[in-house]
Write a protein that binds this DNA or RNA. Structure first.
Lengths: 157, 157
DNA sequence: AATTCATTCATACTAAAGGGTGATTTTATT
DNA sequence: AATAAAATCACCCTTTAGTATGAATGAATT
């Protein structure tokens, strides 16, 4: 707000000063060419040229810039905090059971079969049968492979 | 391109026409006021005022609009196709060797120790020592845990 | 030259993982 | 109620993984 006011004041000052200067110029030209009487044409032309220039200069100086808003799309890479979406299609296609996926998650977290058994309140043998079925369905031989495949198929995050 | 040329032509035409009109005006004023000899001041003032106005008008008409570009950012969620950046800091902090990271990558891909050995042209025993050192440094007990940790620390993708 | 570090390999042992088979019990679903 | 799928468990056996220890080699560093 204060900046705008200052700018307007500055414009007014420039404008006033320019007008005063023009008056002086006009009087000087008048005094200079009044002696030689037949120089009226030249006088008029000079005045015309000068004031044309002044007009151009003043306008350029004082005219407000025409605002033209240009919208520029800037791509901002936003890393989604959780970009995992469970792949239901693969889950169905492979005919996996909930328990099997549960076991796979625990395997991926680095748990041993015993730890998985403790976590799920089942025996180690049960965990082993789950893993065996899981490996069959995922067509893998090792748990590390199962984890890799599970992640690739978006069955686990 | 053609639009720009047309605009320039239009500007030139307007400018030329304006100049011609000014000449006519100048001559007319000269003829009108040459009779009354003492009207030189009025003559000069009129010319000054007219040409000042013409200058302003011309400038406003012909000057290119001053562009004020306003940048508006629009967030676009971009999912990076490969958001993995190797964590050098963790790599150094843990004191890992290149070979150990190499082995970890192969483990993560689901390879067995024998497969890793074949891949790297070393014996299984060598792979085992690498994994043992790796597990020590990562403070884990199993390869699945190592993979999980490696991914969390951005040592492997 | 001495030292450190990464890499390599070996042997022996233990622990964990994985395969195969069979069986029982829930839990949905028709 | 009958059936199918899921989940549970056991036993045996094989394979793989992991631990511990020791040692040789080559490259880089002091």
């Amino acid at each position: 707000m204060s900046t705008t006011l200052l700018m307007r004041n500055r414009s007014l000052i420039i404008y006033g000063f320019s007008l005063a200067l023009l008056m002086v110029l006009l009087k000087w030209l008048e005094w200079k060419f009044i002696i030689t009487d037949h120089a009226v044409e030249l006088y008029a032309g000079l005045i015309a040229a000068v004031f044309l220039g002044v007009g151009v200069w003043l306008t350029k100086k004082l005219s407000k810039p025409k605002q033209q808003t240009v919208y520029v799309d800037r791509e901002i890479v936003v890393r989604p905090t959780d970009d995992f979406v469970f792949n239901d299609a693969e889950f169905s296609r492979l005919g996996l059971s909930r328990r099997e996926v549960e076991v796979l998650q625990l395997i991926a977290s680095g748990a041993s079969n015993q730890q998985i058994a403790d976590e799920l309140y089942v025996s180690v043998n049960t965990v082993k049968t789950h893993t065996s079925r899981l490996f069959e369905k995922l067509n893998v031989k090792r748990r590390t492979q199962a984890v890799d495949m599970g992640k690739k198929l978006s069955i686990i995050p």
